[in-house]
């Protein structure tokens, strides 16, 4: 299924289907207290890009009075629950999709 968004993903470098690692901790921040939208439980985990959503202003600076520029490509990344929680008790193919900005992701290849 392809989804059309009003916001172009001009700087997207990751492709749908690509395996990605989430950075294990916050990238260096040059401004104040970071407003981070990458949940703690998913940092350092590995998933697969499910949808390239578009580019949005970076909330880490936007929330602190900045302009949020340059915009960051945003992805919906799919993770398997058993990869997140070692003792996950549901089905092995249960999954979780999370929106993650590009600067938090590195290619696993």
């Amino acid at each position: 299924m392809s989804v059309t968004f009003a916001i172009p993903a001009e700087a997207a470098v990751l492709r749908v289907g690509q395996e990605v690692h989430v950075l294990p901790e916050a990238p260096p921040m040059s401004v104040g207290k970071p407003h981070i939208r990458t949940p703690f439980y998913i940092r350092g985990k590995t998933g697969v890009v499910a949808v390239a959503v578009g580019s949005f202003r970076n909330p880490e600076t936007l929330a602190l009075g900045g302009d949020g520029l340059p915009t960051q490509p945003l992805y919906r990344v799919r993770f398997m629950q058993r990869d997140i929680w070692p003792d996950y008790s549901g089905r092995p193919d249960d999954s979780i999709d999370i929106e993650i900005y590009q600067h938090w992701l590195v290619s696993a290849a």
Partner: peptide
């Protein structure tokens, strides 16, 4: 699945549960 059960929601065994964490835009 435990949360769904507490809502009274039972799913067939062959159904995958996919959670969406609404973290951004």
């Amino acid at each position: 699945r435990t949360v769904l059960a507490e809502f009274g929601t039972s799913l067939p065994d062959d159904v995958e549960v996919r959670v969406h964490d609404s973290t951004a835009d």
